[in-house]
């Protein structure tokens, strides 16, 4: 598998979407039996645009983060790519297939993991689910054993394979979930909120594992997450979807740079000080004086001046300077919707 990956890479993308659009049509049904009968005769339809003319390509081996607020169209995009939804208009090709045909030869090449939904059989050991996948994906005994051994080692779950799924912790279950998704060796892995609800340690494990799978197997990964740490750790490229439209498609670094992040400054004094003069300074915002503490945000270029000012206005005890949170940047972006187009 890895050999063909090396040999044939880089010529063609694995995912190509041109003007991809998805609208939901649903008929409004009045409540009750009478309403149901009435709607049999005359239906009122409503449409909602979930994905609006998105165009992009993804190359083999890329790890792409799909970002956006709730209801922006991220999950819909993943479902379109994995063939669960029909495309309304535009063109979509993945691995040479039209996903919604759901050809078995397509489905065996992809996997979808949803953080909120388990694909594992709840009251038997995970091994039973894996064996089911062996038959389902027509895996040979050798191939199956090799994949199971390799994945179990990477995920450190050798001891969990024969334990009832309901008895393992949430973090461990997600590992098993990933294992079940990868045992058939998919070329593309779609992940919808893979770390949701996990603790910090488990999150880190999952990230490391995904990075490793990408490196070892050349698996293309498309991931949605609310956790910016996920995105920072995994993705070199992000696509931001908001209101169904692709607002940004590019490197994570450029995104951070484009948003011109500011420094967060927090100064603590031994006695009460007056910080009101600082607010007048150029590039300074969000000044908040709370007794002995002053917090403010300042443009990167003006940071030196402001720090100097802070040391002068009173007996400084503690000074803390941090980059603005990437989540803040995102929030900022969605507020200033549209200004990113030329970033």
């Amino acid at each position: 598998m890895t050999n063909t990956f090396e040999a044939s890479s880089r010529r063609l993308p694995v995912i190509a979407a041109t003007g991809l659009t998805k609208t939901y049509t649903f008929h409004k049904q009045q409540a009750g039996l009478a309403g149901a009968l009435r709607s049999l005769v005359r239906r009122t339809y409503e449409t909602r645009l979930a994905v609006d003319e998105i165009t992009f390509t993804i190359d083999r081996g890329e790890v792409v983060g799909l970002l956006g607020p709730n209801g922006a169209g991220k999950t819909t995009t993943l479902k379109l790519l994995s063939g669960l939804l029909y495309v309304t208009s535009g063109e979509l090709e993945v691995l040479g297939f039209t996903p919604s045909d759901r050809k078995h030869d397509y489905l065996r090449r992809i996997a979808l993991v949803m953080g909120q939904k388990t694909m594992l059989w709840w009251d038997v050991p995970a091994m039973e689910t894996l064996l089911l996948h062996k038959d389902m994906y027509g895996l040979g005994a050798k191939e199956f054993d090799r994949n199971v051994a390799e994945l179990a080692e990477l995920l450190e779950v050798q001891d969990l394979l024969n334990v009832q799924v309901r008895k393992v912790s949430l973090g461990e279950r997600m590992k098993l979930e990933l294992m079940a998704a990868l045992v058939h060796g998919p070329e593309i892995l779609f992940l919808d909120e893979p770390t949701i609800g996990l603790d910090v340690v488990a999150k880190a494990r999952v990230r490391t594992f995904l990075a490793e799978v990408n490196k070892l197997r050349g698996t293309t990964i498309l991931v949605t997450s609310h956790d910016m740490d996920d995105i920072e750790a995994l993705c070199s490229r992000v696509m931001i979807i908001d209101d169904g439209r692709l607002q940004y498609d590019g490197g994570l670094d450029e995104l951070v740079h484009a948003a011109r992040p500011r420094k967060l400054v927090r100064a603590t004094y031994a006695s009460e000080v007056d910080g009101s003069r600082l607010a007048a300074g150029e590039g300074v915002t969000g000044v908040d004086t709370d007794g002995l503490t002053i917090t403010l945000e300042v443009d990167r270029e003006r940071a030196g001046d402001v720090l100097g000012q802070l040391t002068r206005i009173g007996p400084l005890v503690d000074l803390d300077v941090a980059d603005a949170d990437i989540e803040e940047i995102m929030r900022d972006l969605f507020l200033r919707r549209g200004t990113l187009g030329d970033a």
Partner: peptide, 30 residues
């Protein structure tokens, strides 16, 4: 439109009969 590509693999089922056999094997596992 932009074309995409995938790894060369043997098709999952060589024929209709293979497909039925795979499903039967799966049922036996159930």
């Amino acid at each position: 439109m932009t074309r995409t590509m995938a790894d060369d693999r043997r098709p999952l089922d060589a024929s209709w009969l293979h497909r039925q056999r795979r499903h039967f094997r799966l049922w036996r596992r159930f």
